[in-house]
Design a protein around this nucleic acid. Structure first.
Length: 870
RNA sequence: GCCGGAGUGGUGAAAUUGGUAGACACACGGGACUCAAAAUCCCGCGGGGGCAACUCCAUGUCGGUUCGAUUCCGACCUCCGGCACCA
């Protein structure tokens, strides 16, 4: 599918170069090439974005998720950083001391894979990328405090990642355990549960296997409840992110019930949220990995037992091969043993089945085929009894008459039947009563279960922070003393993945001595998940070069939580959960005094573009062939145009499709600004001064109204992250200014008259509002207006309430919702009243006269609707 | 299946959360300037009817509340995210 146009579009010389070539022929609408680089250098020299941490100004910490330096930056990345830069510059102009740091999430697999492919060291590859990323950040005009730059792969950083590990280890929050883990054969490493998507590796998509390995974990489950509870503190996070976290933690309340073996000492403990169905239990079923599976099958050599052992092994193998399989056929077998229902005394068989998960609840389930669909399917397949103990509530309306299909379980609440002394109770009440009966008899207790599991942090790869542990034959796992940190990554390791850490084959790294006894010992050779690096980096920015500690508690306590965190929604679970967890650990150690690291979170949408390969809208990526590189665009239109278009493309939290030709709109707009402000710059009065609203003629009052209405609206939009409407608000103002310029005597605008001063006021307001979004052009024009200081050292413009007052207002009267008439009336409120009302809220309810109160809706500059009061 | 979110012109979208639906922009059409083009400026641009002032219809579908609904309530349809043999 070629989208090429005939030659008529460009010079017919047949050697048309890159997109920018032909545009060189045409004169730029404004000379961005002349001043953009100059102002960036000036801001840098001026230290505009170098924060004074001890400033007395109110602090503002604006943080972008630090990028993984791989490939090139494209306009999709740009959105992230441009949004952050708008916030930073606006806060600067609002008088804040703003911390805007940047760093690199520089450990990880892509570097290692690229290194293997190209035969270079991952560090070389990574630092190369960082260099390129930095020049691209500069092109966009992103204002950052580069003196605080950090890189996760730098020993000066990962030393403290290792320190963090030791702190957790000392508190018992890091532990090593033999456990079934998610194995990605392609990456040659294990993965945390959070890194498995639909049973496949989140990075490469390979289906995960299950392996039994001894691995390091962080005890995230110790914080399940707090991670859940504190979501309520995060009122300035998007609801969807909070919901995702809540679901991920997955709290459920229930009872664990002990089923004692009828003819043996073993007890099978089951977790259930449906104790009300206890009378419906017709068998108990355990996971193949359950420790009791082997015990119950027994070890005599009868044919039946041997058969069971074979089946058990088959089920385990199936799990190992393919950990995830959504349409797995239910399989299982009878252990031949029975347990007693503690409430009824009835004996029920114990089965083993592949549909029971070992790592949730207790790995054993009381099966109620009448009221659980999974148990139902299993019971039907193996001919186990199905018993109804919950009756649907009586019908309350004609739509309730539908009875459940006979081949499915009734899973909702209802009234207990066939349930002994509990019959007649509602499900909810029965759960309480049965739970209490079990508890007092010593057969069960209330239990809360979470879906959240501990965080597996071991990785069998080279390019990560080595876990600072030494394995001594006598003393087991011994922490490397803090004084011996960092445990340096050897430069000369052979790092091809083999399933074992590459460090394990590096003798000089592995062989060491035990810090406790001095005898020969082996270093731990796994490295840490890169999400450990990113779980604490926001603390390091406050003292990035401190060689004596990971972070400075007093500074961190002053500057955190982060006021505004910005990043992609793809991190809604993984990274944010881990960072919250680590913050809570540090709080409990007394090292920080806040519970949550990120006060306000903004998750921006992706920039998509139709992929020539798949024909669909896709996130920009090299493999999809739909990457838009910023460099060409910036060369052709200037950085401000690209920034402005990116902001204007749509609501920033939603995905947006990149359209090259629409960039022209932003470019034209900036051209109009350039001419409108620039052409008159040297003829305007030197200052707007104080403007008496009462002396303005109609057209001039209208312009001033529009200016101040724009200040109000754009200010609101910037705070609310409505950048698309902020841009359109400025476009409206420019359109209005253009009309005013055409209808007004140019000599008056260009001299010290009231019109000239109002004009200057409009121009300055326009530049001040535009500055965070299109900083270069605003700065350039600001200086052309005669200012010596940077526009970013000036304050955001303020609304003059008087400018919003109209002496006559057009009204619409609605009678009975139909008849309407339009008329201009003099407003009968005092000027001060209107002034106040108009500022407080553009829509104001007031009552005029005491006989027939009318509801007045005031919309400044537009209309009033008068409707009968209520 | 469960939990979120969204459906508005040819297109991206707006409507300050109950008050002129479609701001602003892209694309398109027409005009001015030009030898011509580019750039710039002006006009038009949801649908039907009317020469016109104007007038009906229209925010996924069907109902409801209200003087008034894109907005609130109920049911349904479609799409997009997240979770999923979690007991």
């Amino acid at each position: 599918m070629s989208d090429e146009r005939p030659m008529s579009d460009g010079p017919a010389n047949g050697t048309e170069g890159p997109a920018g070539r032909s545009s060189i022929l045409r004169e730029a609408a404004f000379p961005f090439a002349e001043y953009e680089a100059r102002w960036r250098a000036s801001w840098e020299a001026d230290g505009l974005f170098r924060v004074d941490l001890d400033s007395t100004r109110p602090k503002y910490y604006c943080l972008n998720m630090f990028p993984y330096p791989s490939g090139d930056l494209h306009v999709g990345h740009g959105r992230n950083y441009i949004i952050g830069d708008v916030v930073v510059r606006r806060k600067l102009m609002d008088g804040h001391a703003v911390l805007a740091p940047m760093g690199w999430d520089a450990f990880g697999l892509p570097a290692e894979n690229a290194a293997i492919q190209n035969g270079i060291h991952p560090g070389v590859w990574t630092y190369d990328n960082i260099k390129r990323f930095k020049t691209q950040f500069a092109q966009w005009g992103i204002g950052l405090d580069w003196t605080r730059e950090i890189a996760a792969c730098h020993p000066g950083y990962y030393q403290w990642t290792q320190w963090l590990f030791l702190k957790l280890y000392a508190k018992g929050l890091a532990y090593k355990a033999e456990a079934p883990v998610n194995w990605c054969a392609s990456c040659g490493t294990v993965l945390a549960n959070e890194q498995v998507e639909d049973g496949a590796c989140f990075r490469c998509g390979t289906i995960i296997e299950q392996r039994e390995l001894s691995q390091w974990f962080f005890k995230t489950t110790a914080y399940s409840q707090r991670l859940l509870d504190d979501l309520s503190l995060l009122t300035e996070w998007p609801d969807r992110v909070r919901t995702m976290q809540r679901n991920w933690i997955g709290r459920s309340e229930g009872v664990s019930i002990d089923f004692a073996r009828t003819d043996g000492p073993e007890i099978v403990r089951c977790f259930t949220t449906r104790a009300d169905t206890l009378y419906g239990v017709t068998y108990v079923v355990i996971a193949p990995e359950h420790p009791l599976a082997l015990v119950l099958i027994g070890d005599d050599v009868s044919a039946a037992t041997a058969d069971r052992m074979t089946r058990l092994q088959a089920m385990k193998n199936q799990r190992a091969e393919r950990f995830y399989n959504p349409d797995l056929e239910k399989a299982g077998f009878d252990t031949g043993k029975t347990v007693t229902n503690p409430l009824t005394g009835e004996a029920v068989p114990v089965w083993v089945a592949n549909y029971v998960l070992m790592n949730y609840g207790t790995g054993a389930v009381m099966a109620v085929p009448g009221h659980d669909q999974r148990d139902h399917e299993f019971a039907r397949k193996f001919g186990l009894p199905i018993r109804t103990v919950i009756a649907p509530p009586p019908a309350t309306g004609p739509n309730d008459l539908v009875s459940p299909p006979p081949d499915a379980a009734y899973e909702d609440d209802g009234v207990l039947v066939n349930s002994g002394t509990m019959a007649g109770l509602q499900s909810g009440d029965a759960r309480v009563a049965i739970g209490e009966a079990l508890r007092s008899a010593g057969h069960g207790q209330p239990t809360i279960t979470y879906r959240l599991r501990d965080w597996l942090i071991s990785r069998q790869r080279y390019w990560g922070a080595p876990i600072p542990i030494i394995n001594c034959p006598d003393h087991g796992a011994v922490a490397v003393p803090e004084s011996q940190l960092p445990v340096l990554l050897p430069d000369d390791a052979e790092f091809k993945p083999t399933g074992e850490s590459p460090l394990a084959r590096h003798a000089a790294f592995v062989n060491t001595t035990c810090p406790t006894c001095g005898k020969p010992a082996r270093r731990e050779t796994d490295t840490m998940d890169t999400f450990v690096d990113s779980s604490w980096y926001y603390l390091r920015y406050l003292s990035p070069r401190d060689e004596s500690k990971a972070f400075d508690s007093s500074r961190v306590n002053k500057w955190l939580p982060v006021d505004q965190y910005i990043g992609g929604v793809e991190h809604a679970i993984l990274h944010l959960m881990y960072a919250r967890f680590i913050t809570k650990c540090l709080k409990d150690m007394g090292l920080v005094d806040f519970d949550e690291p990120f006060q306000r979170l903004f998750t921006q949408g992706m920039i998509t573009k139709k992929s020539p390969l798949t024909g669909r809208l896709e996130k920009m990526s090299k493999s999809k062939g739909n990457v838009v590189a910023p460099t060409d665009l910036i060369e052709k239109y200037g950085a401000d145009t690209v920034r402005l278009y990116t902001l204007f493309i749509g609501p920033p939290e939603k995905d947006a499709e990149w359209e090259d030709r629409a960039v022209e709109g932003a470019y034209r707009f900036l051209g109009r600004v350039w001419r409108l402000v620039g052409d008159m710059a040297d003829r305007m009065p030197q200052t707007a001064g104080w403007i008496d609203q009462a002396n303005l003629s109609g057209g001039t009052a209208d312009l001033r109204f529009k200016t101040h209405d724009t200040i109000r609206q754009v200010g609101h939009d910037l705070t609310a992250f409505h950048f698309n409407t902020a841009v359109s608000g400025l476009m409206e103002l420019v359109n209005r200014m253009s009309l005013y310029q055409q209808s007004t005597d140019g000599a008056r605008i260009g001299s010290d008259t009231i019109e000239g001063r109002v004009w200057r006021e409009s121009c300055e307001a326009l530049l001040l509002l535009l500055a965070p979004m299109a900083p270069h052009i605003a700065e350039e024009l600001w200086h052309r207006l005669g200012h010596d200081e940077s526009i970013f050292r000036s304050r955001s413009p303020e609304v003059d309430p008087k400018a919003l007052v109209r002496s006559t207002i057009r009204i619409v009267v609605q009678v009975a919702g139909k008849l309407r008439s339009h008329l201009d009336v003099a407003v009968n409120l005092s000027g001060a009243d209107i002034e106040r009302l108009a500022l407080e809220d553009p829509k104001v309810v007031a009552y005029l006269g005491d006989k027939t109160p009318l509801k007045i809706i005031l919309v400044p500059g537009k209309l009033i609707n008068i409707v009968p009061g209520r």
